[in-house]
């Protein structure tokens, strides 16, 4: 398993947000994480990226324990993410957002720039070209010079994905990546995610759009009240009685 959760628990005050969550994410697959609101999906994602430390349990990335590392160390191991409530750099342009996201790629060193060495210009060109490529992949190269705070909701989500891709991640954590997107945009994202997986990236995604999750994910894990209900292929999960009761059943009644 590329990413392995071993009995991860986390409580906030008296609330057990996660209790003994265990499952694995296979390399180069799209793994879905579903469950009703408040079931602990985002908390689990925060644990992976190091923003929330688990109270108990272990988290292994490629066999290496990462649950005690600080967020920037985890990012350096190739873990990138987006946020449910979108965290962009609002007063920077799209291009600048992605350039800021290249931090771990090296480049833009201070001293060559101070003395205007040729390597500084080469690094600058490379950095801009890479940023443009990330924007193009996410389909917002046309808005490269627009301020992030001027983007539409769907464009913001795309920019956040572009910025996460600037890190050249091995695993991408997407927290509701298509929320608020139009049908055509959703199709474009689907193509993007599939091509990322083909190029060797693993994706763990939280999403409430069930048809999207069902056709995109190879495996799905269902959380309910901070516990894993089941992990399996989409069709197995869809027929799991507890899942239907806990999540799908409830949703169809609404």
């Amino acid at each position: 398993m590329f990413l392995e959760f071993e009995k991860i628990s986390r409580s906030f005050g008296g609330v057990n947000a996660l209790s003994e969550v265990s499952f694995g994410v296979q390399a180069k697959t799209i793994h879905g994480l579903i469950g009703p609101n408040g079931s602990g999906k985002t908390t689990l994602m925060n644990v992976v990226s190091g923003l929330t430390g688990p109270d108990a349990g272990r988290l292994l990335l490629d066999g290496r324990p990462i649950h005690r590392l600080r967020p920037h160390r985890i990012a350096a191991l190739g873990v990138a993410r987006t946020f449910q409530n979108i965290r962009l750099f609002p007063k920077m342009t799209c291009m600048e957002n992605v350039i800021a996201g290249q931090h771990l790629m090296g480049g833009r060193a201070l001293f060559p720039r101070l003395f205007r060495l040729p390597s500084a210009r080469a690094e600058e060109r490379q950095s801009v070209a890479n940023a443009m490529a990330c924007l193009a992949k996410a389909g917002i190269e046309g808005r490269a010079r627009a301020l992030a705070c001027s983007l539409s909701y769907g464009e913001r989500r795309r920019l956040e994905i572009a910025r996460a891709m600037a890190l050249k991640p091995r695993i991408l954590l997407l927290d509701e990546p298509i929320a608020g997107m139009r049908l055509r945009e959703i199709e474009e994202m689907e193509t993007l995610f599939r091509s990322l997986v083909e190029s060797g990236v693993t994706i763990l995604l939280i999403e409430h759009n069930m048809p999207f999750v069902m056709r995109l994910c190879q495996r799905i894990t269902v959380l309910h009240f901070g516990q894993t209900v089941t992990t399996g292929a989409p069709e197995e999960v869809a027929e799991h009685p507890e899942v239907i009761e806990a999540y799908l059943g409830m949703k169809s009644e609404c």
């Binding site: 967020p71 990138a80 946020f83 609002p90 290249q102 910025r163 890190l167």
Partner: peptide, 17 residues
């Protein structure tokens, strides 16, 4: 750029390494 990232959104800066 790191200074600017921290100024604009510290949490996002962290997860970008």
């Amino acid at each position: 750029w790191s200074f600017a990232s921290v100024r604009e959104d510290e949490t996002a800066a962290m997860v970008m390494g």
